[in-house]
Amino acid sequence: MKLLNCPINGVRPVSEFIFGGEFREMPDPSKATDSDWAAYVFYRDNAPGVKKEWWFHSPSGTWFIAERNTATDEVLATYLFGKKPAESTV
């Protein structure tokens, strides 16, 4: 992967982006048990496949979601959080 499509700034070199890790649904901190919270912070399967990830476009300060195959490095879609396109499968 050499280029990534930022939902705000368009296609930019990948060196402008920072990987933010796999997207996780955050449990309610006031209700989660210690082990729920550990599972949220640490535990994931992380086997290769299509993953929903956080990415950050550093020059513009934009956090967004990328759907990427971690075995082949193909990006299937990028969009702002909560603005998932209808054709998305993940």
Binding site: G21, A39, F42, Y43, R44, D45, N46, A47, P48, T70
Partner: peptide, 16 residues
């Protein structure tokens, strides 16, 4: 490791 752990249904903090 994540592929082997998936076979036994174990989650870890490991990232490749």
């Amino acid at each position: 490791t994540p592929r082997i752990c998936k076979m036994v249904g174990l989650q870890t903090p490991i990232v490749i």
